[in-house]
Every structure is written in C-alpha cells, then in structure tokens.
Design a protein around this nucleic acid. Structure first.
Lengths: 258, 258
DNA sequence: CGCAAAAAACATGCATGCACTTTCTCGGCC
DNA sequence: GGCCGAGAAAGTGCATGCATGTTTTTTGCG
C-alpha cells in the first residue's frame, strides 16, 4: 500500500532505506531529540513490517542517534552536554587524521567537488537552518569519504551525525557564515599540501563550532516540560543537572502525521 | 559499538548475551575469520529463535566483526591488510585522546586495577595465545573505560576488537612479553601525570604492535582454501577443501563460551 | 474536586511460518 | 570420464501472532 516506489532501483535494502530516511530526518530536526519512534508507526510509514522497522532502529541505536529502552518506545537520542563535549573531542582527533591523510593527496576533481559543496552551503545559507546545518555536516563526511578508509569514513560520519544532533539541541540560531569561510580555508590548505596548516585550521574550525554551541551546560530549548522543570522541581538541583539527559518525553509521535 | 543500551548486565538481555559470547569467541579465535555463522545454529546453541540470533549478527556486523551478505550465511569478518592498517591509524588517534584525558587524573584504586590487570596478563603469558591476546586487548579497553566518556569507550572498544581480529589473521605466534612491559610503562607515565610521555609511550606501543603484525600485505592464513591452494593447483586440492570447509560449516559454528 | 487503583489500549519481545534465494547433489549427456 | 543442469536441501528475508510489560484512560472513593 505504501511506497514500493524505488523498487526498480537498488532498493532491495529496506532497512538501509529506513535508516537513511530517519537519519536525515533527525539531522534536519524534522525529528527532534526525544521524539518517539514506535516500530509499527515506522513500519506503516515505510510499508514494511515491525520486524524491519525494529532492525533499522537497532542500527540507528548502534550509531547513537536513537535511544532504545527495553519495553519502551524508542526515542531520538538526547545527548547530554557532557556527551556533546566528548563527542567533539573525539571528532577533533578523527578529523585530524583525515587532514593528515588528505593533505597534498587530492586530485583536481576532488578539490572541485569540495568547492562545489561549499558553494552549495553558501547558497543554502539563506534558506532554513536545518538544510544549512546538514550541508555543513556533510562537508566533513565528504572529506572523510575521500580518505577511502572505510573505518575512518564510518567513524567520522557517525560522530559528525551525533555532533549535528547535539548542535540542534544546544545551539542557538545557526550562523553558518563563518563555517563556510572556514571550510574554504581547509580546502585551500589541503590543496596546497601543507598538512600542519590543514590540521590546525580544522582543529580551530571544530573548536569554534563546539564553543559556539556548547557555551553553557544547560538550556535545552524547551520541548518537554518535565525536562525543563527537572532541575527546579528537586531540592538538590546539582544532581538533576548532572543527569540532564533524563528523558520523560511526552511529546507527540512525529511520525504518525496526517 | 559494543552496547547500544546498557542492558549489558541484565540477564534478560538475550541479544547482548549472544553478542558478548560471539565477540569473545572471535577474539579468542575460537571462531576464525571466515567461519560461517548460520542463524539457525546460533539460535539453537543459545536457546533462542533465529530472530534474536539475527539481531545479534546485525549488531556484530555494525561493529565490523562479522560480515553480512544478503541471502548468504553470515561469516566472521576477514579484514583486508589495508583495513587493518587503517584501523590501527584510527586507533592510535583515539588512544592518544585516552592518554590525554587520563594522565594525572587516575586515583589509587584505578592504578591498582590497571596493575592488577597487567599482572593477570603476565600470568596468562604462559597459557594459550588466545587468552593472552584477549587480555592485552582488554587492557586498552579498561583504560578507555576510565575516561568515563561513553563515546570514547565505545569507539576504542570497537576498534580494539577489530585490531584484535586482525592480529589473529596476520600476526605470527603472539609474543606478549614486550606487550606487558609496555603496558606497565604506560601505567607509570599516567600515574606520574606526564601526558606527553604517556601519549608517546602509547603511540610507540601501538605502532610496534601494528608493525609486528602488519609486516607484509599478503598471506591470509588459512581462510578460504581455494585462495590458498590456487598457486599450487594440485589434484589433491579437492580433498583438502572438503576436509576443512565442510567441517566448519556444520557443527563447529557455535560457541561454548567460558 | 482531587487522587489513586483498576482496566483498557498500546507497544515491545520473541517465536514461528512461508516465500524466495543460494548451495548442494545427483543423474543425464557429451 | 568429466561437465552440466534440474531438483532437493538449506538458509535467509520478512510478516504475523501471541505473551508480556508499559502508558493512558476510566472509574471508584474520600
């Protein structure tokens, strides 16, 4: 009944399709952190059974994008501030490796592809934040792809997704101006072949993104009343603050629209 | 990704149990790279249905320990030499971060735990290689655990498992002597609080493990008989092939862990 | 009117059944 | 004798059913 639309192409891989769709939805904040993801709703939406939806959720949980609680509805992950900081720390190390592997080894076509991507970012800067954030994230993934190291690609993608999710939680209205110019700087450094400069630029870039986003530990911009009030409700606010990932989401299930 | 959710200690978690058992079996080379993992056999061995076994395999596949081919029996992953080198590169970066986070921040109890683990390694050096290799790997995971950064823990664990799998493929009989002393050196540096020294020692350690293992690109030791015997192309090849491959597929696929 | 306990609705955990694909095997043919 | 193809066997892909646990609604009571 639903969509066997892409049956003609490579879409024999159903769980992969669902994973990609959900990932993208999460990245663009169509599904906010804490949003419920019931298996049967997903299954109905994508025209598959719960079995497949379940498998896809497991996959996404492995990537850290959704949180799987036993006997409970899966929800989009809500990383704590501490998680976010850790994620950026790891990301910086991984992307340092990307820089080292790529510096001076890029062909003309690759440079062109990178430049084109940044152009697209610039073009999208006027549009909605969601697209702009996604494109910025995908720039880093594009870089990682060029290392042709499957492991590195997977890890950078994963961590970049998580960071992106985090940004959507903590960051105020995205200002991508600086992001674009910093990306251009990285491309230039890579093209010139100076690994140290490229590493330095990327480090600076990521650090600035992180600090722009992670200025203060708290302040999830309000979705769930219980979350927001948690620190105030209890006498010892310190304990509540520490466990800021506590999730009592009573939000609507974003998937069963219409 | 070891744990998508931390049900790891509850015995109600069946897929986690199977994952852990299989991981361990793979680590200790009870299951060699290329070994078949039919869902039926797994399910029967662990007393669950194919559904669960399948889920566990998916999990392990996400970790890169098993290879999942559509409509085909899953097999223990057989990383290429290139994969192995990439894995070590990533691992070095990640463990550098571990060192930086841990240097000078370890309590007495933690130092003691680390020392005790290395003592166990030393004691196991006389025993079978499999145990010794596993313990050496777990030392690094123990270190990562002490960072208390879930992301870092997960990534280091995963990459360490993969490297361990690789070692079992390419390395010659394990010589853990040096490993133990290097581990002790790292502990000392961490305790003294000198981050740079710790980073340097760990880097050296990993590099030496990698180079011990990855001397030459070739020689997949005994996985696919066809590959190995290809150069020889003798008439007896058929017999040898039956002997090894057939045997493994049927009965030995399952694990008697612990 | 508020609150708590019971029950209905809802969702997941897991096993099993059926269809389809790959692999193995055996008998016919060159 | 060796190669090849049809059928059988084995295995995966996926949906569905039932049991169990969770959330919400309803109902009874102070």
């Amino acid at each position: 009944m639903a969509r066997e639309d892409d049956e003609s192409r490579k879409s024999a891989d159903k769980v992969g399709t669902i994973c990609r769709a959900l990932r993208r939805a999460i990245l663009e904040q169509a599904l906010e952190p804490g949003a419920k993801l019931p298996e049967d709703a997903l299954g109905e939406r994508f025209g598959v059974s719960r079995t497949i939806a379940r498998h896809a959720l497991g996959q996404l949980a492995a990537e850290g994008l959704v949180e799987l609680r036993r006997n409970r509805i899966a929800v989009v992950a809500t990383p704590s501030w501490r998680d976010a900081r850790d994620a950026f720390d790891v990301r910086i190390e991984l992307e340092r490796l990307v820089m080292r592997q790529l510096a001076g080894r890029l062909g003309k076509a690759q440079i062109a592809a990178l430049t084109a991507h940044v152009d697209a970012e610039e073009a999208a800067a006027a549009g909605p934040d969601a697209v702009s954030i996604r494109l910025a994230t995908e720039f880093h993934i594009l870089l990682a792809t060029m290392t042709e190291s499957p492991i590195l690609i997977r890890y950078v993608s994963e961590i970049a997704y998580r960071c992106c999710l985090t940004l959507s939680l903590f960051s105020r209205p995205h200002s991508s101006e600086c992001g674009v110019s910093e990306h251009r700087g990285v491309i230039a450094a890579l093209a010139s072949g100076d690994a140290e400069v490229a590493i330095g630029l990327m480090h600076e870039h990521l650090e600035s993104v992180a600090s722009r986003a992670l200025v203060a530990p708290g302040k999830p911009r309000g979705r769930d009343i219980m979350d927001i009030l948690a620190p105030y409700a209890s006498p010892d606010a310190a304990a509540a603050r520490r466990d800021s990932a506590g999730d009592r989401s009573a939000g609507r299930a974003s998937v069963d629209a219409e």
